[in-house]
Amino acid sequence: MSHDHKGSSVGAYTFIALVLGVITYIEFAIIQYEVAWLNAAWTIITLVVLSVGKFILVVAFFMHLKDDEQTYTGFFSIGMVFALGTFIVLAFLFSIRSVSSVWARSERTPVEVQASSEHPEEAKPHHELHGIPEHLQASIESEGYSRPLAEIFDTARPKNQALSIAVPVARTTQSFTVSEAPPLFALAGQDGVPVEETPAIEVSAQTETAQGFDTELGGQVYSGNCAGCHQVNGQGIPGAFPPLAQNLPILYQADGGREYLVNVLLYGLQGPIEALGQSYNGIMPAWAQLGDDEIAAVLNHVLTSWDNVTLLDEFAPILVEEVATARSTNLSSAQVLELRNALDLP
């Protein structure tokens, strides 16, 4: 072939390789041993020049572009020019964007501007809400932007349940959900590995049938009073209304959880809570106007619906008497919150 011996000799290759090695060492040395007379800008320029030098040496001699057909050089150059041009412009666009956005951000949250330049980890944008009563800020903090990452990635994604187009294959049933998929580079027990092990839901063959409680009444009470917030499927609305499915068994099995559940219905609940890894800060109205039998029935209903019962080691239906007993204690919703906080939840 015509260009067989156009390439350089072994000696030349060796020389180039030597130069490449030396340049790499110089680059290393510049960074490793601080050079007093090089300021930051010049260090970067030097590094860029050196690596461009390496780049050109490899391309020209090892890839033979120096002696080869110009067409190759042309094609490769077009690629390089497009790539360099496009992504330098792109990086530039983001840098001027950030200038103007820092400016604009100062409108909203003056504090952040300094933070973003000094400590990138503190530059987490959050909603500073002007004109909001002080005591509301806390609940705002737990929402939206400021949610910790772990919370976002470990909780079930809110799904738009409003519209029903046929979804025969839900992601969770057919395959791994994301939180189940092992992160590529995570080792067991480290960040990113889901902390909570969601118990496997198995459709139990023996569905718990009515055992000494009124299933029909429970269903009626639920759909009339509870489903508006906690939804018909017991999933609640993430961030607004805690789920009952999968959550209640945890509460029920905690020490004192059984009594707590009764109290929540009788006296309501207000304040920050956590449920299945997601935090809520809302209000559960008191349902004292319901009869003891209704409260017992609806509690039994929710504890046995949505496969909840399969998550329970043992389940004894809540009795009307228990509700009647609890009714005499006359708690406030704040006390109910204390009750909840006292529970030994996993």
Partner: peptide, 26 residues
Amino acid sequence: FTQKGCATCHTIDGYAEDYSIGKPNF
């Protein structure tokens, strides 16, 4: 407004003293 759970999401300023529910995302 509270019993039906509206207050859990929606803020009405001046609803009551020390009223501290409702979310900015609603």
